[in-house]
Design a protein around this nucleic acid. Structure first.
Lengths: 114, 114
DNA sequence: TACCGCTATATCCTGCCATGCATAACGAAT
DNA sequence: ATTCGTTATGCATGGCAGGATATAGCGGTA
């Protein structure tokens, strides 16, 4: 596909991103791996970055989206909370609406583009 | 406003942004000032950046969105073409739809946010 | 008790991108 | 001919976001 609409929806709170595409993806990876560091490896970002994203998320919302505990391979780790799943679901729904909008816009411009 | 949804819609073509919020704003400024450099000053970006944006726009679409000619205060300058106004209008329309979507999403999360 | 892999955090490093500066040519007016 | 404010383009510098690295403490397992 040579040309397409790229949409990104970010939930801003003051100056930091409360939720966005990267955080949604990270949430998925945390859910499937059970740890922040493994999720970071899976997604291909540094642990530092992943931890910062989680921290920002948790600070921006009333309830944390990720619950984490120190400790080794068995015992510690991180999990997505109920609030996390709820918010992610809402985000996914709006993402879908966004894609529909994008398709409309794209077809309305298809004869103008190179 | 402490928390709000920030949406940006970019029309991508390969790896560069054919159209987006910055380019829409720049187009307005070019229309009102009649030159790229004056528009850059008005918007608060460097001339180089403004010129690059215009160049990208013009390369991505069939017809140029901005027509420019060298030469001094009287004679040279830049103007928004008919195609430019057409595309910008389409973009504005979709931006409005985007804002409506954002409002819905925001209210659906208002009790979760800090 | 030793080990492993995780959370959490501070500090340092580096690569990239935008900005700013420099330059050349142009076109109209005076 | 001179001046002014453009377009158009290249180059170098600097700032900063993010990655890499180091360290400390934790919680299970074997």
């Amino acid at each position: 596909m040579a040309n397409y609409i790229k949409l990104r929806a970010r939930l801003m709170r003051d100056d930091d991103i409360a939720f966005g595409p990267g955080k949604a993806q990270l949430l998925d990876a945390i859910e499937s791996t059970g740890s922040i560091s493994a999720a970071a490896r899976e997604v291909g970002m540094s642990y530092r970055r992943a931890w910062l994203l989680v921290d920002t998320m948790n600070r921006c919302f009333r309830e944390p989206l990720v619950h984490s505990a120190p400790g080794g391979k068995h015992g510690g780790g991180a999990e997505v909370t109920e609030a996390g799943r709820r918010i992610r679901q809402r985000y996914r729904q709006m993402e879908q609406a966004l894609r529909d909008l994008a398709d409309d816009f794209e077809t309305s411009l298809e004869n103008e583009l190179n």
